[in-house]
Amino acid sequence: NQASVVANQLIPINTALTLVMMRSEVVTPVGIPAEDIPRLVSMQVSRAVPLGTTLMPDMVKGYA
């Protein structure tokens, strides 16, 4: 089972991601792979992401 990136806190719209905002977790459906966490740092979210939400490619500007 592949771990995905999950929000560790509420991430407001247009916030630049930092390591403390993200954790890896095995979830369904699968989201952005956990190994991409270093690449996500400083990228902005395109919408508010609630705590515990799996990050999907369309939620991060410039990821897809």
Score class of each variant (00 low, 15 high):
1 N>R: 03
1 N>G: 15
2 Q>C: 09
2 Q>R: 03
2 Q>N: 13
3 A>E: 15
3 A>Q: 13
3 A>Y: 15
4 S>C: 04
4 S>V: 02
4 S>N: 01
4 S>K: 01
4 S>E: 00
5 V>A: 11
6 V>N: 02
6 V>Y: 01
6 V>H: 02
6 V>R: 04
7 A>W: 01
8 N>T: 15
8 N>V: 12
8 N>Q: 11
8 N>R: 09
9 Q>R: 08
9 Q>L: 09
9 Q>F: 10
10 L>C: 06
10 L>G: 12
10 L>W: 09
10 L>K: 08
10 L>N: 10
11 I>E: 01
11 I>N: 01
12 P>V: 06
12 P>N: 08
12 P>Q: 11
12 P>R: 08
13 I>K: 08
13 I>S: 09
14 N>Q: 10
14 N>K: 07
15 T>W: 06
15 T>K: 05
18 T>G: 05
19 L>G: 08
20 V>F: 11
20 V>M: 13
20 V>W: 08
20 V>N: 13
20 V>T: 13
21 M>E: 02
21 M>C: 03
22 M>P: 00
22 M>K: 00
22 M>L: 14
23 R>W: 03
23 R>T: 13
24 S>G: 09
25 E>K: 04
26 V>G: 04
27 V>L: 06
27 V>H: 03
30 V>Y: 13
30 V>H: 09
30 V>D: 15
30 V>L: 15
30 V>W: 06
31 G>R: 02
31 G>K: 00
31 G>M: 02
31 G>Q: 02
32 I>Q: 01
32 I>W: 02
33 P>H: 13
33 P>S: 13
33 P>N: 13
34 A>M: 13
34 A>F: 07
34 A>D: 11
35 E>W: 09
35 E>L: 10
37 I>D: 00
37 I>Y: 03
38 P>H: 11
38 P>K: 12
38 P>I: 08
38 P>R: 09
39 R>D: 04
40 L>S: 00
40 L>F: 02
40 L>H: 00
41 V>W: 04
42 S>M: 08
42 S>I: 03
43 M>A: 08
43 M>R: 09
43 M>N: 06
43 M>Q: 09
44 Q>T: 14
44 Q>K: 07
44 Q>L: 11
45 V>S: 12
45 V>Y: 00
45 V>E: 01
45 V>H: 00
46 S>F: 08
46 S>W: 08
47 R>L: 10
47 R>N: 15
47 R>W: 06
48 A>P: 15
48 A>I: 08
49 V>R: 03
49 V>M: 04
49 V>F: 03
50 P>T: 15
50 P>S: 14
51 L>W: 12
51 L>F: 12
51 L>M: 15
52 G>Y: 04
52 G>I: 02
53 T>L: 11
53 T>S: 10
53 T>A: 13
53 T>I: 10
54 T>G: 03
54 T>C: 03
54 T>M: 03
55 L>M: 13
55 L>T: 01
55 L>A: 01
56 M>S: 08
57 P>I: 06
58 D>F: 12
59 M>E: 03
59 M>I: 06
60 V>G: 01
60 V>I: 12
61 K>R: 10
62 G>A: 10
62 G>P: 03
63 Y>T: 04
63 Y>K: 04
63 Y>V: 04
63 Y>H: 05
63 Y>A: 04
64 A>N: 12
64 A>G: 14
64 A>P: 15
64 A>E: 12
